[in-house]
């Protein structure tokens, strides 16, 4: 099986609506740190990184929702990835502002790491993750394992949780 096939399969199973501007065989990932673990999302999904100044608390929301931030006059919901993924609070000073049309969401992270371009084949899918898994795959970067976050599932969970309230 060649690389293209693997990429297709991955994109079909993980991110159907993802833009594929460049060659499918490479993926641009934004690697960031939550707590001590490294996570990554596709760079296309990220609009920008900001340093949070004021975080406004929102009552009656799931615990992983940290609050709201004011971004150029627009409120963004900030999800605490630590709480979301590991049910654990981590120090965070930066917000990864996601590039979404319908909703304005940011992820509370500990720090941004780098933007990498990796061949698709280096990304290994997490086999028994299922459709509800928050992580879509992983790769090894300089000896450390980097988990790729399944943002769609995350959004859905958010919507579900908010509706359940």
């Amino acid at each position: 099986m060649d690389n293209n096939e693997i990429l297709k399969k991955l994109s079909a199973s993980g991110n159907g609506e993802e833009e594929q501007i460049e060659q499918v065989s490479y993926r641009k990932l934004v690697v960031f740190i939550v707590g001590e673990k490294q996570y990554a999302v596709d760079s296309a999904e990220v609009k920008e990184v900001v340093i949070i100044s004021d975080l406004y608390f929102i009552p009656f929301v799931p615990a992983y929702v940290a609050g709201l931030i004011n971004r150029h006059g627009e409120p963004h919901t900030v999800i605490d990835l630590g709480m979301m993924l590991e049910n654990e609070k981590h120090p965070g000073g930066k917000v990864l502002v996601m590039n979404r049309q319908d909703d304005r969401i940011g992820f509370l992270i500990t720090d941004i790491f780098r933007i990498i371009t990796v061949p698709e084949k280096e990304i290994s899918a997490i086999a028994d993750a299922g459709s509800t898994s928050m992580l879509s795959g992983s790769l090894t970067l300089d000896g450390d394992e980097v988990f790729i976050i399944n943002t769609r599932e995350m959004y859905e969970k958010l919507e579900r949780d908010i509706e359940n309230i």
Binding site: I21, E22, K28, V30, S43, A44, V46, K47, E48, V49, V50, I51, K94, I112, I115
Partner: peptide, 19 residues
């Protein structure tokens, strides 16, 4: 440096977006 890094990161993001 952090802010610079963020800015640079953002710029890189923009650059990545620009193809």
């Amino acid at each position: 440096a952090d802010q610079t890094k963020i800015i640079a990161f953002n710029a890189e993001l923009e650059a990545a977006a620009a193809g």
